[in-house]
Simulated assay, not measured.
Amino acid sequence: MGQIKYIEQQIEGLDGRMQSVLVHIGESPLAWLHARGMLTARRYAAGEALRRDWERAGLRARVTMHWDSAPRQGKRDSGAQPADPTLTQMAARERFDGAIAAAGPGLADILWRVACAGEGLAAAEKALGWPTRAGKLVLTLALDRVADWYRVP
């Protein structure tokens, strides 16, 4: 078993004051928001469904070698064609694209940053040039639309 790692971060509390908190670095931003009552179970489930489809579709950046295209033992053909995406990957990509389209162009940016890329809400707001707390409102609207698209009860 690995050791759970925490980092200290400064966040703005509900009262508007900055406070120091320990953040479990293995926890997703959506899980963090849900655990603190800032996201309903429906919105959290919708965000997790979107993230799962993003990962299943193979859209996550790779940091290691992709071995699917390696030549088989005994073959020296350097022109190996990349493997075709699986049906599972293609279906996940279609669901992901549909969910992002359902969220809409003005809402999809923060949705992708927080749910898929694992960016914290404050970092996403800053990267998008939005005022503090605007991201939470826009994220909840996007998650509501995605929940409708995924038919989350």
Rank of each mutant, 00 (worst) to 15 (best):
H66V: 12
R133Y: 05
P85N: 14
R113G: 03
A108K: 07
D144I: 06
D144K: 06
L143C: 11
A123V: 10
Y150L: 06
R113W: 03
A80Y: 07
L141S: 07
Q9W: 00
L30Y: 09
R145W: 09
L137N: 08
D144L: 04
R76G: 15
M18P: 15
L107N: 05
T40N: 05
T132P: 13
L33N: 07
T140N: 13
V63D: 12
A147N: 08
Y44W: 12
R151W: 05
L33G: 09
A115R: 00
R151F: 07
R52H: 01
D109V: 04
P85A: 10
M65P: 13
M90S: 14
E48I: 00
G129F: 04
G120V: 02
R52C: 02
L137H: 11
A35D: 15
D109S: 10
L59M: 12
S69N: 12
Q89P: 13
A49N: 01
L59P: 06
I25F: 03
A41R: 12
V138W: 15
S78M: 14
A122D: 14
A35Y: 10
V138Q: 15
L107T: 03
L139S: 08
Q9H: 01
L141Q: 11
G58W: 05
A115Y: 01
C116A: 04
L128I: 05
R51Y: 00
W67I: 15
E55W: 05
Y6N: 06
C116R: 00
A61D: 08
P131F: 01
R60G: 13
A108H: 05
G135N: 06
A102E: 06
M1H: 10
I11P: 04
A45T: 10
W112G: 12
M1E: 09
I11T: 08
P105L: 06
G47P: 03
E12K: 09
A46Q: 03
R62T: 03
P85W: 12
D109L: 05
G135R: 02
R113T: 02
D15H: 05
